[in-house]
């Protein structure tokens, strides 16, 4: 199904055919979803931990440790400046160390999660800094300790912003899973490279682009809805 042997109409028809979707897209979508969800769980745990740490140790944070903060900040910034492709290549050996394999979905999950943690951690710490100093001081004046202030005040107050950041992160992990497909991870990206790029199967290329766009839209919609729900509950919009 290249433009040499088929018309645009035939390509489009095939792009929406049961054969393409049933045999390739749906299974690939399953693999992509698996990688996405697993990578997000890891990113969520470590990203929030690292983001909290960046926030807590900042000179304007709850428990300033400027030396540690500078080191963490420098590492996060350095990692964030690398293009995702480079990050995936760099982190694949780490995936191998953890899963015993340098290829396949599980190694890629590790690579994806590690690639996204610095970005998500920075978003989290920025969101936490948005919580007004006044609220923190009010809690402090009541005798609340730093851990209580972080978990009971700062994080809940920042929740709508945190949901928005997570939405951004989900979409970038999604685009990275597609990229990781090119490195043997399977899923939508693999299909796109294997058929679309190597064999000029434009029908499949169109189908993969469609899937990615729909997924990104859906994620954005759900993220916005969740953030709005929280704000509505608090009568803040």
């Amino acid at each position: 199904m290249t433009f040499e042997n088929s018309t645009l109409g035939e390509i489009l028809k095939s792009a929406f055919s049961a054969k393409v979707w049933g045999e390739m897209m749906i299974p690939a979508l399953g693999a992509t979803m698996y990688m996405l969800v697993m990578a997000l769980i890891i990113m969520l745990i470590f990203g929030i931990l690292l983001g909290d740490l960046l926030y807590m140790t900042d000179k304007n944070g709850l428990t300033p440790v400027p030396a540690l903060n500078s080191v963490l900040s420098a590492i996060v910034n350095a990692l964030r400046s690398l293009p995702s492709m480079i990050m995936i290549i760099i982190t694949i050996p780490l995936g191998r160390m953890i899963t015993g394999q340098g290829y396949g979905p599980n190694a890629c999950i590790i690579a994806l999660a590690i690639s996204c943690i610095p970005m998500f951690a920075r978003l989290v710490s920025n969101n936490l800094f948005e919580v007004s100093q006044g609220k923190i001081e009010a809690a402090r004046a009541m005798g609340a300790g730093n851990f209580t202030i972080l978990t009971k005040i700062v994080i809940p107050e920042a929740l709508p912003a945190l949901i928005r950041s997570f939405t951004v992160a989900v979409i970038s992990v999604l685009s990275m899973t597609a990229l990781a497909g090119a490195f043997g991870a399977g899923g939508i990206g693999h299909i796109a490279v294997q058929y679309g790029f190597n064999r000029f199967r434009y029908d499949i290329l169109i189908a993969t682009v469609l899937v990615l766009i729909i997924m990104a839209q859906l994620i954005q919609f759900l993220g916005d809805a969740a953030a709005r729900l929280v704000l509505k509950k608090r009568h803040m919009m």
Partner: peptide
């Protein structure tokens, strides 16, 4: 030791 503020500083959540 209670404290109150100009900007109230209530928790919106």
């Amino acid at each position: 030791i209670g404290m109150i503020f100009q900007t109230f500083n209530l928790f919106d959540s």
